[in-house]
């Protein structure tokens, strides 16, 4: 388990202005590990945990007594995000249907390939897989004030 902020944190600064601690949990994070991390940190504020979406669902719910938990997915990656969406189905559907597009100048083959990938993103599973592959799953844990 490693801690550290994202490299390009413009979007994260805007969406997570109160986060003072980043934790890279890789595949899972148990509530006890999280509590140990929080106790070891002298910094106050909220916590962002990098983990795949399904791992977040399993372990972060154990920590809900600490504070509120929100899930986000970053594409193409957490370190260089172009899109960060909360993992609510309606938000993901809107982003894939109305926001993401094939960039101008893409060739016919790459354009069709990208269009196909964008169609896949209409399904929540594709977002989860993309987040897991790129390390783009992030859980925001709001500590009680």
């Amino acid at each position: 388990m490693r801690s550290g902020p994202p490299v390009e944190d413009g979007v994260w600064d805007v969406l997570f202005p109160t986060v003072s601690l980043w934790i890279n949990a890789r595949w899972s994070l148990r509530a006890r590990q999280l509590e140990r991390q929080l106790a070891a940190s002298l910094r106050r504020g909220d916590v962002a945990v990098v983990m795949p979406p399904w791992a977040a669902v399993r372990s972060a719910t154990d920590a809900t007594d600490l504070a509120s938990v929100r899930h986000y997915i970053a594409l193409p990656s957490r370190r260089r995000p172009k899109v960060v969406a909360s993992s609510h189905p309606e938000v993901l559907r809107y982003v894939s249907d109305k926001v993401l597009t094939v960039p101008p100048g893409a060739g016919p083959v790459s354009g069709l390939l990208l269009a196909g990938l964008l169609r896949l993103l209409r399904h929540r599973t594709a977002w989860d897989l993309a987040a897991a592959a790129s390390g783009g799953g992030v859980v925001l844990i709001r500590r009680p004030g």
Binding site: P81, H88, V99
Partner: peptide, 8 residues
């Protein structure tokens, strides 16, 4: 409730 999408 944090239901947002950020575009960069």
């Amino acid at each position: 409730g944090g239901r947002v999408a950020g575009l960069a």
